[in-house]
């Protein structure tokens, strides 16, 4: 079995693990790093539930090989809160009811976080575009978009 040392920065902390070449990023995160906040949804890159940030850009961890992010900065939903305080985006999702059953929420928040880093003041259309690869089966899109607008300082 081809295996190599994977070095990366995970939620701000450097890490090194011996990881097989064929391990997916989602399996590395959930079963080696034990960060189970990232969710497996469709299992084929179609639903966005597994979205994490790699060097500030959203990436679907269920169709990414763990070694493809070697040397990069990876952020998961667990990296959002600091000292028990939710990030602005997490708080907005919480307060504006952007989360219903919650399964899509980690991916939705990471995709939105990536969008806000590229476009700090997105229009509603830009939010819709930025989250177009994230499916919410509870269909709570209106509140999700509202939460992102609130987090971006557009408090309507």
């Amino acid at each position: 079995m081809a295996k190599a040392i994977l070095t990366l920065t995970l939620n701000g902390r450097p890490r090194e693990d011996a990881v097989s070449h064929n391990v997916l990023l989602i399996d590395y995160l959930r079963e080696i790093a034990h960060l189970t906040g990232t969710k497996m949804g469709c299992d084929g890159g179609e639903c966005g539930a597994c979205t994490v940030l790699v060097d500030d850009r959203p990436r679907l961890s269920c169709i990414t090989l763990a070694h493809s992010v070697a040397g990069k900065r990876v952020e998961t939903i667990e990296g959002g809160a600091r000292d028990g305080r939710l990030s602005q985006l997490q708080r907005a999702f919480h307060e504006r009811l952007g989360s219903q059953c919650g399964y899509c929420t980690p991916g939705m928040i990471m995709a939105a976080e990536g969008l806000l880093r590229r476009t700090p003041k997105p229009s509603t259309e830009e939010i819709r575009q930025g989250l177009s690869g994230n499916i919410c089966r509870c269909t709570g899109y209106t509140k999700i978009i509202e939460a992102v607008r609130v987090a971006a300082g557009d408090a309507t």
Binding site: R59, T64, L115, G133
Partner: peptide
């Protein structure tokens, strides 16, 4: 092409 997250990679 696909959605924003796919287009990043």
């Amino acid at each position: 092409v696909a959605a924003s997250s796919h287009r990043q990679v």
